[in-house]
C-alpha cells in the first residue's frame, strides 16, 4: 500500500535523505530506527505528503500523494507528529472528535477510537490535566478515528516516536496494541522509534537508517544484527538471548562509545 523508492531530499546544501526506499503493507507494523539525525522524522514528513522529495517517487494506495489534495490525503493516511500541539481548555474527548471532522464516508464513534487506544477513561479530562504520555494516547485515538471514519480500503497510520513520553512498560504495551490494531483493522502502520529492543520485538518490518540512507530493510531477524547495529550506532553492544532463544535484546556497553 505504501511504496517509496529512491527518495532524495536536500535542504540548504545538505542531503537529508539519499536514495532511500521503503515499502509498507496493510496489516503490518513497520518501524523506522536509526541514530539521532538519521532522517527518520524527515522521511515520515515525506511519506505524509507534508514535504516533497527532490527526486524519487512515493505511491500511497496507488496514488501520488503530491497530486492529492489535503482532503483526499486525509482519507488515506493519518499522522501523529513527534510533539503534537494542544491547547488548554479542550477535553480529551473533544480532541479525539477532531479526528472525525472530515466526512470521509463512514460513521465511526470517537468512543471506539478511545477504547482501542485504551484512553477512554480520560474522555472528560481537560488536556492540561493529562501527562505527556496520556496526551500522546489521546492524539493516537484522534488519528485512529480519522482512519476509522475513512471509507478507503487501504489506510496508513504514520507515527513519529509514539513511545517517546511513555515508560518502558507502557511503550511495550502500546507497540503490542499497535500491531494488533494493524492486523485487526487492516491498517498499515509506519512508526519511528528509538528503542531497538521494542522494534525487534514488535515490528513486522524494520527500516534501519543512517545519515539519510537506508542501511537495512527487512524482518527484525534480518535487520537486527549485532555487528551492523554497532557500526550504525557507533557503540559496542551486548546481545542477550533468552533460554528459548525467542527473545533478544541489545544493551549498550557503557564507556566504550566509539562515536568520537
Amino acid at each position: 500500500m505504501l511504496e517509496a523508492s529512491h527518495l532524495t531530499l536536500r535542504h540548504d546544501g545538505l542531503t537529508l535523505l539519499d536514495d532511500l526506499s521503503l515499502t509498507a503493507a496493510c496489516g503490518e507494523l513497520t518501524l523506522i530506527i536509526g541514530p539521532n539525525g538519521a532522517g527518520k522524522s524527515t522521511l515520515l514528513s515525506l511519506l505524509s505528503g507534508l514535504r516533497m522529495p527532490a527526486s524519487g517517487q512515493i505511491r500511497l494506495c496507488g496514488h501520488d500523494p503530491y497530486r492529492l489534495g489535503a482532503r483526499e490525503l486525509a482519507r488515506l493516511r493519518a499522522v501523529v507528529e513527534q510533539a503534537p500541539g494542544w491547547q488548554p481548555g479542550f477535553s480529551a474527548a473533544e480532541l479525539v472528535m477532531m479526528g472525525g471532522y472530515l466526512p470521509a464516508g463512514r460513521q465511526a464513534d470517537w468512543r471506539d477510537a478511545m477504547r482501542l487506544m485504551r484512553c477512554d477513561a480520560l474522555a472528560e479530562r481537560r488536556l492540561e490535566t493529562l501527562s505527556g504520555g496520556e496526551r500522546q494516547r489521546v492524539h493516537l485515538a484522534r488519528a485512529l478515528l480519522q482512519l476509522l471514519c475513512s471509507d478507503a480500503t487501504q489506510r496508513l497510520l504514520l507515527l513519529d516516536e509514539p513511545t517517546a513520553a511513555l515508560d518502558f512498560g507502557l511503550a511495550d504495551a502500546l507497540m503490542a496494541q499497535l500491531r494488533e490494531l494493524a492486523q485487526t483493522h487492516r491498517i498499515g502502520i509506519v512508526a519511528v522509534v528509538h528503542d531497538l529492543n521494542l522494534a525487534g520485538r514488535h515490528a513486522d518490518r524494520i527500516l534501519l537508517m543512517k545519515n539519510g540512507c537506508g542501511a537495512a530493510f527487512g524482518t527484525p531477524s534480518e535487520v537486527m544484527r549485532k555487528e551492523r547495529l554497532e557500526a550504525i550506532y557507533g557503540v559496542r553492544l551486548a546481545e542477550l538471548i533468552s533460554q528459548d532463544e525467542q527473545l533478544r535484546a541489545f544493551v549498550p556497553l557503557s564507556g566504550t562509545d566509539e562515536r568520537d
Binding site: 505524509s48 507534508l50 489534495g69 489535503a70 482532503r71 490525503l73 486525509a74 482519507r75 493516511r77 493519518a78 499522522v79 507528529e81 503534537p84 500541539g85 494542544w86 491547547q87 479542550f90 480532541l95 477532531m98 479526528g99 471532522y101 472530515l102 470521509a104 488519528a143 480519522q146
Partner: peptide, 13 residues
C-alpha cells in the same frame, strides 16, 4: 490551535 501541520494531516488546508 493544534498547529498547521495537524490541520493539514486532518484534511484541511
Amino acid at each position: 490551535q493544534l498547529g498547521p501541520e495537524t490541520a493539514f494531516h486532518q484534511g484541511f488546508d
